[in-house]
Simulated assay, not measured.
Amino acid sequence: MTPFLRRHRELRGSGAAAQARQEVRGIIDEALLAGLTVRRRDEEDALLVTCELVTNAVRHTRGPCSLDLAVRHDGIDIDVTDHSPEPPRPRTPDPSGALGGYGWLLVSRLADDLSIRPVNGDGKTVHAHICTG
């Protein structure tokens, strides 16, 4: 299905997650103005998934990452591409919160579809789909 709206953004550094959230809010605002239905819960899920994927890409890989968003009639596609071929690894969550470990678990529960594909042998794209409406 052809995307209704698309956005692409190169991200790096400590402000990457905030920039990514801004992109998600912007594309959802455009979708709403165009008459598409995006529930508040779906928007929140897309914000959390995007923030987590971008934060992990910036924290655990070298170089910048890119964010590609696409709004389709059935949902929001979130693609985060980085320069590490290593897939995300689930970790045992730290109950104190000090060491994290909740990110991939959170993404796995919120995304309706989640996949990882290699990019040019020296990177990967993590794809998440959030169903809307």
Rank of each mutant, 00 (worst) to 15 (best):
P93D: 11
I130R: 09
I78C: 01
V24T: 02
S84A: 12
E52A: 04
G26S: 15
I78Y: 06
A70I: 08
V38N: 08
V119G: 08
A31M: 10
G121T: 14
I116P: 04
P90F: 15
P88G: 04
L32C: 11
R59L: 08
T37F: 14
R21S: 04
R40M: 09
V71L: 09
T132N: 12
I27W: 06
V49M: 05
G100R: 08
E23P: 00
M1N: 10
D68T: 03
L53N: 02
A20Y: 00
P118E: 10
L47G: 04
C51G: 03
I27S: 02
V58I: 15
E44F: 14
T50R: 01
R89V: 12
L69D: 03
C65L: 04
V58Q: 02
D79K: 07
G133V: 10
L114F: 15
F4M: 11
I116N: 12
N56V: 00
L47C: 06
T61Y: 05
D74F: 14
E43I: 13
Y102T: 12
C65N: 01
A46K: 03
R39P: 07
A34H: 14
R9K: 09
H83A: 04
G97N: 13
D79Y: 05
T55K: 05
L114W: 13
R89W: 11
R109P: 04
D29P: 03
P88C: 04
C131P: 06
L32T: 13
S96F: 15
L47D: 07
T81Y: 05
G103M: 04
R41L: 12
R7K: 10
L114I: 12
H129P: 11
P88D: 11
V71R: 01
A18R: 03
R109N: 11
L47H: 09
V107C: 03
E23W: 00
H83V: 01
N56Q: 08
L67N: 02
D94G: 11
V107L: 06
P85S: 11
S96D: 13
R91I: 04
D74M: 08
